[in-house]
């Protein structure tokens, strides 16, 4: 049975010049698999992720013909119902640990919080669980890191802490929104490896959001290509090179290859894309 059913998902915001629709009728299913959502900046990827988590605050509006998580209709779920799902059954890793971790709360306490909200366990058991999950994200000295504040760890370590925080309750669905974009190139692969490992071992569904086609192709089973709030292409990761949509072709063409010499990289032909949608 699939984990997530999304039909005709729309996200709208009122602005000075009327309502703008930033997600324009998204439809997809997700099983316990790794789905990549790729597209240029501003194409509506983050808004899609946040809409799934129920995090679009008024005056933003979310509508859908169907929005089901494991058989639960998310559309009219009250905030309390969403709260029970969030953290425990669906979670999200955000872009930059510098901003997504609270600067004045110790790392151990921040991870332990998720347990506090959803499980009744004593402080000792909670600490034990936190230390274990820190180890699961390959942090060598969990005892030490437990007591640190976020500014005392590197970006790569911060993102591993973030991942630990989001998997500590073994959720079914994990959304990772540009989880490596803010990190040093040298640690990106490690962070993705850890994430991938946890997702596979625990059988979670993963939505990996990125603007990086190569990365998504490498770490996902299936790919949605988004452009201006719509899905313009959907394919298996290994079939990506057979993509037909002009936008996808354009993205593929602008990825430089190591074994070629080109004077300049091609630029997207937006007129052609517009004609294609």
């Amino acid at each position: 049975m699939s984990l997530l059913h999304v039909e005709n998902l729309r996200v709208r915001f009122p602005t000075d010049h009327g309502e703008v629709e930033v997600v324009k009728g998204l439809t997809f299913d997700l099983g316990r698999e790794r789905l990549g959502i790729v597209g240029e900046s501003g194409s509506g990827k983050s808004m899609t992720g946040r809409a799934l988590m129920g995090l679009i605050a008024p005056p933003g509006r979310v509508t859908a013909d169907r929005l089901e998580f494991d058989g639960i209709d998310l559309r009219n779920l009250p905030e309390s119902g969403l709260r029970r799902l969030r953290g425990a059954r669906m979670s999200m890793v955000m872009q930059d640990p510098k901003f997504s971790l609270n600067p004045v709360i110790r790392i151990g306490e921040q991870i332990g919080e998720a347990l506090q909200f959803h499980r009744s366990m004593n402080a000792r058991a909670r600490k034990q669980a936190v230390l274990e999950v820190l180890e699961a994200v390959r942090i060598n000295e969990p005892e030490r890191v437990y007591r640190l504040f976020p500014h005392e760890v590197s970006g790569g370590m911060g993102q591993r802490v973030m991942i630990a925080m989001m998997v500590v309750l073994q959720p079914d669905l994990m959304i990772a929104d540009e989880p490596t974009s803010a990190l040093d190139v040298s640690v990106r692969a490690t962070v993705l490896e850890i994430l991938d490992d946890l997702v596979r071992r625990r059988g979670m569904g993963l939505i990996l959001i990125s603007h990086d086609l190569d990365m998504v192709a490498r770490w996902c089973d299936r790919i949605l290509v988004m452009y201006a709030g719509r899905v313009v292409e959907e394919c298996a990761a290994e079939k990506l090179h057979e993509a037909t949509h002009p936008y996808t072709r354009g993205l593929l063409a602008s990825v430089p290859q190591l074994n070629e010499t080109r004077r300049r990289l091609p630029v997207l032909d937006r007129a052609a894309i517009g004609a294609g949608t």
């Binding site: 995090l55 709260r83 979670s91 999200m92 955000m94 901003f99 609270n102 919080e113 989001m166």
Partner: peptide, 26 residues
């Protein structure tokens, strides 16, 4: 408006905790 407030929401934090722990403490 900070991103770590969203993180707290993602963890399923009740509103009271978001306001008094995550926003007020800093």
């Amino acid at each position: 408006g900070q991103e770590y407030i969203t993180t707290a929401r993602v963890k399923g934090a009740p509103e009271r905790v978001i306001i008094w722990r995550h926003a007020f403490r800093p």
